[in-house]
Amino acid sequence: MSADSTAGLVINIITFLIGFPNTVLAFCSCIRKIHSKPLPIDIFMLNLTVSDLIFLTFLPVKIKEAADDMVWNMPYILCHFNMFMVFIPLHTTSLFLAAISAERYVCVRFPVKYKSQRRNLYTILICVAIWVLVIIVIVFAHEAAYTNPEKKEPLRCYRDFTPTQLRNLNEVRLAVLGLFSLTPFIIYCFCYINVIHILLKLPLINRCRRLRAIGLALGTFLLWTVCYAPISVSYIVGYIRKEDPKWRTEALMLTTLNACFDIIIFFCISKEMRKAVGVCANAFFQLYVYSKRFMLLCP
């Protein structure tokens, strides 16, 4: 197994083991909140967790691909499905994080207007628009990158392109870069810088809320830097040089980690999530204490 395949296998397994249980926990917390008294942030969070769950549910297929040294030994139709299940959650996550940052800014900057009765309706429409936009763009990317599996041995998924396919794909990637990476990053910067500035000026805001706002901003920027910045640079380099950069595989591997970093977002926003994490941490600690006592009692 090559070094790239080994690294991909390790990253995928770590992401699945850390991301899946925490995302399920966040999803249950969001469902409970939606059933009681939903706010726009809860609707955005629910969509973010659904996006992560779609990706994590399909991650075992990526683990199998990495274990096979990136050779596609599964039905080829699954390769097409793989593209949608990997790239749609990747880009919806970026847009939902931008929506969450904008929602936090509106909540702090315009607290009276934020209480509008129609805010949930607007939020649902935004979520629907995000899903539709991403699906349309990924469908175009799929058409641009469609390859004939009979021409390549060993068969690899979404890796071997003809010059025409690569040219079309690089153009789509440039649009993806603008829509799903650079635009959200600008929104993150504008919203969180202003949110932190406003909260620091308000004397009645407690310290915990300020720290959560700072943690939310840092978590979002860390996620973008690790998961989205490398793949974004590969899109620019690929378009300029009219090729697929050799290091694009490593950049694509890092995008897998977004399901782990989203846990920081869940923790900073959701009170229910913080309580659930506290309960689970306490349960694991008690289990550790009891197991240690049991080992001491055993001869």
Rank of each mutant, 00 (worst) to 15 (best):
A3Y: 13
L9E: 01
V10E: 03
I14H: 08
I18Q: 03
F20H: 03
V24R: 02
L25E: 02
C28E: 14
I31H: 09
P38V: 09
T49M: 12
L53T: 04
L53P: 00
V61T: 10
M70Q: 10
V71Q: 08
M74I: 09
M83T: 10
L90G: 02
T92P: 04
T92R: 06
F96V: 03
A99Q: 03
A99T: 01
Y105R: 07
Y105V: 00
Q117H: 13
T123Q: 04
T123A: 10
I124Q: 11
I126N: 07
V139G: 12
E143Y: 15
T147R: 12
E153I: 14
L166Y: 05
R167D: 11
N170G: 07
E171A: 12
V172S: 05
L174S: 10
F180Y: 14
S181V: 06
L202P: 00
N206G: 08
C208T: 12
R209V: 08
R212D: 07
L216G: 00
L216P: 00
L222K: 05
V226Y: 01
Y228V: 04
I231Q: 03
S232I: 02
S232D: 04
V233W: 05
Y235G: 05
Y235H: 13
T255E: 07
I263M: 07
A276G: 05
V279F: 15
C280E: 11
F285L: 14
Q286H: 15
S291Q: 15
L297C: 14
